[in-house]
Amino acid sequence: MRVVPSSLHAEVAHALRQRIFDGELEPGSFLDEVALAEAMQISRTPLREALKVLTAEGLVRHEPRRGCFVAEVTEQDLDEIFPVIALLEGRCAHEAALNATDAELQGLQVLHERLARHAKARRINDYYETNFAIHEAIIGLAGNRWLAQVIGDLRKILRLARQQQLRAPGRLAVSLSEHLAVFAALKARDAQGAEAAMRTHITRQREALRELTRDERRKVAG
């Protein structure tokens, strides 16, 4: 993967961020500056600036005299972040119900139909990408840039763990039903109902992740 020099640290940060989200750079892994600079055909200066950006975002942690590592999301991180993002995205759904046009809701309809097809076929990666697009669309329909900014920062951290919850037994079908409940409230212009449904949806994501963690611990213990 080559990054052209003119892109500087912002493009380098984008490339590394995507590799983290795609799982190419795994949580806890060491980020070898020499190897990365050679692979991306750049100098270490924009690479170091990019790593500072990712550190500020919480995707990378810097350890003095050791270097940079891909961040690992802890159970405490999840317990602290999910209630906050449930409140914030719930408010986005509230505002989207009041602000969305009929044409914009039709666009959401298309996304939900796609989501249902992926759920039926159990295409988890495709489901996740469409799920992500739906959340982004609702955030956009809220028309509140402050909400969008804070949610965007938190979602970068949650993206390190969020997709795992779709692998919990029965979670894919439940997630789809939750999404349809949010969408039904949006179509009905039920702001309070949309907010409550979105909060429930996100809270249950945390519950699914917690159950997966318990299952993994049982397997190790057993």
Rank of each mutant, 00 (worst) to 15 (best):
D190Y: 15
L166E: 03
I139N: 03
E95M: 15
S175I: 00
R159K: 07
I138K: 00
R145K: 13
L158R: 00
I124T: 11
I157H: 01
E113P: 11
A133R: 10
I139C: 06
A181Q: 07
N144D: 15
L186D: 01
R159S: 11
R162G: 04
A133E: 15
H118E: 01
I157D: 01
I157Y: 00
E104C: 05
I124D: 02
N99M: 07
A188V: 14
A103T: 10
H112Q: 06
A161W: 01
L172Y: 02
I138Q: 00
L105K: 10
L186T: 02
A181G: 12
Q163A: 13
L180G: 00
I151C: 06
I134W: 08
G107F: 08
N125L: 12
Q165V: 06
I124E: 07
D126P: 01
L141K: 01
D126S: 11
A188L: 08
E113A: 10
H118T: 09
R91F: 14
L176W: 03
R117E: 12
Y127F: 14
G143D: 03
A121S: 13
A148L: 12
E104Q: 14
I134N: 07
Y128Q: 03
A119N: 02
I134T: 07
D153G: 10
D190F: 14
E178K: 04
R155P: 00
G90H: 11
R145C: 13
L88C: 12
A142E: 01
G90Y: 07
R117F: 07
A181R: 12
R171T: 00
H112C: 06
V182K: 14
I151E: 03
E129Y: 00
R162A: 08
I139F: 04
D126T: 10
V174C: 05
L186K: 02
G107V: 10
T101M: 08
E129H: 06
L172H: 02
P169M: 09
R189T: 04
